[in-house]
Amino acid sequence: MTEGYGAISRRDVLKTSAAGAAIAGSLGPGNVAMAQGQADAPPHAAVTLKVNGESTRLELDTRTTLLDALREHVKLTGTKKGCDHGQCGACTVIVNGRRINSCLTLAVMHEGDEVTTIEGLGSPDNLHPMQAAFVEHDGYQCGYCTPGQICSAVAVLEEIRAGVPSHVTADVSKPSPMTTTEMRERMSGNICRCGAYSNIAEAMAQVAGVKA
């Protein structure tokens, strides 16, 4: 959607790390690169991520989080950085079918992993049912927590169906019921300061086919 720098980003990713090119070039996944004596080459490693179905090979400073890899290197900025410390949920993505906070995991630890971001769930003209339900129920305001909320919401319904217990499950030896009480508890790792919670619960209930 934008011209200019964004358009050449993919090639530039490799150039960005060119400072460490000699080292990076020889790297396989998960290997160590020591930056001995090279002030300009912090350790890099190669990683291949499967983002929204597309394989992407990146040479990254080992310190790069999955969140920053997605936002700054793959240029998928739908995944948000709200706190960078696991305290808000804005960075939620689905990795190998499970939702996680992408800010508290290193990109290099995800060799070969399937990462689904908000952009992979649906597109503006072909929305995922959860995305459409958020629009219909006004499950957002500023929109900044929204991608994380939606990725979480999709995963939460799966978790309930899969029988993962929660803090509000009355009897943990039995499967949890599909209720908005369960949804509210499980969504609590996604903070919305705009306070769209009541509407998000309604959007989720609609997608789950239960009463709000």
């Binding site: 959607m1 934008t2 011209e3 200019g4 720098y5 964004g6 358009a7 980003s9 936002r71 240029k75 998928l76 900025t77 739908g78 995944t79 948000k80 950085k81 971001t117 908000i118 952009e119 649906g122 597109s123 503006p124 003209d125 929305l127 995305q131 459409a132 958020f134 629009v135 219909e136 006004d138 957002y140 929109g143 900044y144 929204t146 991608p147 939606i150």
Partner: peptide
Amino acid sequence: TRIDGPLKVGGHAPYAYEHQELP
């Protein structure tokens, strides 16, 4: 419903740190 809704729920609304059209 919000006219900017599809952009927001799709992750395509650009917030400050995300603009790519830079010189």
